[in-house]
Design a protein around this nucleic acid. Structure first.
Length: 469
RNA sequence: GCCCUGAUGGUGUAGUGGCCUAUCAUGCAGCCCUGUCGAGGCUGCGACCCGGGUUCAAAUCCCGGUCGGGGCGCCA
């Protein structure tokens, strides 16, 4: 249940259900009005029980035919599940349920003895997605009916957790001197070259949906904002079809001046540690619904294991050796693919950084130190990834702040520096060395909630075939 | 883009050429009972993705389409 301590009365209710569930002892006999969804409606005779649910909890409303208007009683008694109903009545202690012998008596619970009721909106039947039904529902059907899927307790809990994760992440970064920024999502040219962007028309000018705030957060830092972060959408027109990719996703990005790759790895691991610690301290109740659901699916419960600091650093050259020793086919200069990550994850199952990738594999804006060479002599970069098990969470790095090197990098990667003057001009008038990263919010949530698919933790996901709802 | 796999009532499923006017659960509708609480009992309702083909016979086999699931690549 959500903490409802600061909820004010509204036009439709004097109390939240959570306030009565948690503070019922002090409210016994008081007349209250509440409103919610009818989760179950039981009883066909002279009495009826309606289990009402709002965003803060569940409570039983008890209706007696001779306590209220006859037509109203009949209407509520035959209301369909998930109809929204407002009731007014006195708070009372609920009669305890029958318990089997030997079972302890449950703690006191409260109910509303209804004197007035109002069906605000009747739900059509049957429901396309059962809210409390035991049957499984496929993800595709759920996403088509996300408005109902979201009423299910464990789904609701995951999205409350999502909000918490963003809140704690923000809190942490603000505490480290970062300020929040917003970059444009309509851009004239590719942020990082090469990759597939969604084209669009900006009035009469061809434009694209932004693939990353990368270049803009750098410009903000070059402009003297020192430390910035952004939580915003990124769009990629890649026809991938996996449990961890979407074509629109929320990226958690930071960029900081006077920092290198190691510095921003520190920011990241402290932030993740803070998020996990805060969730463990404040939000474990949200896992009850998730784990109840998981138990019904014969899945192990998820637990919040606060990762210890520092996260392991496995430089690229070392990662290649681990993969080779684990029987993987890989050479220096190859990308570390998912099946390679499986080998590394066997040794490092949790969070681990993979720093110092070959420069040839990194974007033009990543910094390299000419003296840093790999085991076969190739140029290393200050780019890094953060993985959790086999899954990539983050990529980041120290940025190239030397404009001549930046332009050479562009040419080396077959990009035309003339297309990037809006960006490179930012480096011509004194540029601080800086670094940053971008983190996939949904991927982080997959870990925390135990979701097996990013679509679980994104309200209205956009994938290769889904543009609605 | 590639490989594999699937589509049966509202939902989740059983069903591998004739035992199918299709199983079970959930749901929905109605009745009975009931301070119920995963309520219970009874009765009823509701489905083979679309288009071709093979066959005496197709939910079942073949082809095409659409949509889904898993994996790869790429990434966050």
């Amino acid at each position: 249940m959500r903490d409802s301590a600061d909820w004010h009365p509204t036009a439709f209710r004097t109390h939240t259900i959570g306030q009565i569930v948690n503070g019922g002892a002090d409210l016994i006999g008081a007349e209250v009005s509440i409103a919610g969804y009818a989760e179950t409606v039981r009883g066909r005779g002279a009495i009826a029980f309606v289990m009402l649910r709002d965003g803060t909890g569940h409570i039983q409303a008890f209706l007696k035919k001779d306590n209220m208007d006859e037509d109203t009683f009949a209407a509520v008694q035959s209301a369909s599940r998930e109809s929204t109903i407002q009731v007014t009545g006195a708070v009372a202690q609920k009669r305890p349920p029958k318990t089997k012998e030997g079972e302890p008596t449950p703690p006191p619970e409260y109910e509303i003895t209804v004197s007035e009721a109002n069906i605000l909106s009747a739900a059509a039947t049957p429901l396309p997605v059962g809210i409390t039904d035991e049957v499984n529902v496929g993800l595709d059907i759920r996403l088509d009916n996300r408005h109902l899927d979201l009423r299910r307790a464990h789904v609701n809990a995951m999205f409350q957790l999502r909000s918490k994760v963003l809140q704690y992440g923000r809190d942490h970064l603000i505490g480290e001197g970062f300020s929040e920024m917003n970059s444009p999502k309509i851009i004239a040219s590719a942020s990082e070259g090469g990759t597939n962007l969604f084209p669009m028309m900006y009035f009469d000018t061809p434009a694209f949906l932004s693939q990353s705030p990368q270049l803009y957060k750098q410009l903000a830092v070059l402009g003297g904002l020192e430390r910035v972060f952004e939580i915003g959408p990124a769009f990629r027109a890649e026809k991938h079809d996996t449990y961890r990719h979407l074509n629109e996703f929320i990226s958690f990005d930071i960029e900081g001046a006077w920092m290198n790759d190691e510095d921003v790895m520190g920011v990241q691991e402290r932030m993740i540690h803070h998020i996990w610690s805060q969730v463990a301290a404040n939000d474990l109740h949200l896992f009850e619904a998730i784990n109840t659901y998981r138990a019904s699916q014969d899945q192990d419960p998820v637990t919040v294991e606060i990762p210890s600091l520092p996260f392991p650093r496995i430089p690229y050259c070392e990662a290649i050796e681990i993969v080779k020793n684990g029987g993987g086919e890989i050479e220096w200069g190859d990308d570390i693919e998912s099946h390679h990550c499986d080998i590394i994850a066997a040794e490092y199952p949790g969070f681990h950084f993979l720093p110092r990738w070959p420069m040839a594999m990194k974007p033009f804006y990543i910094y390299h130190d000419e003296s840093e060479k790999g085991s076969t002599g190739g140029q290393l970069s200050r780019g890094f990834d953060l993985n959790y098990g086999r899954d990539e969470m983050t990529s980041g790095g120290q940025r190239e702040h030397r404009v001549d090197v930046l332009e050479q990098n562009l040419r080396n990667m077959d990009l035309d520096p003339a297309d990037f003057t809006f960006y490179t001009d930012g480096f011509r008038y004194g540029a601080p060395p800086h670094a940053g990263w971008g983190l996939g919010v949904a991927r982080l949530l997959m870990i925390l909630t135990g979701a097996g698919n990013v679509r679980e933790v994104v309200l209205f996901p956009r994938d290769r075939t889904r543009v609605t709802p």
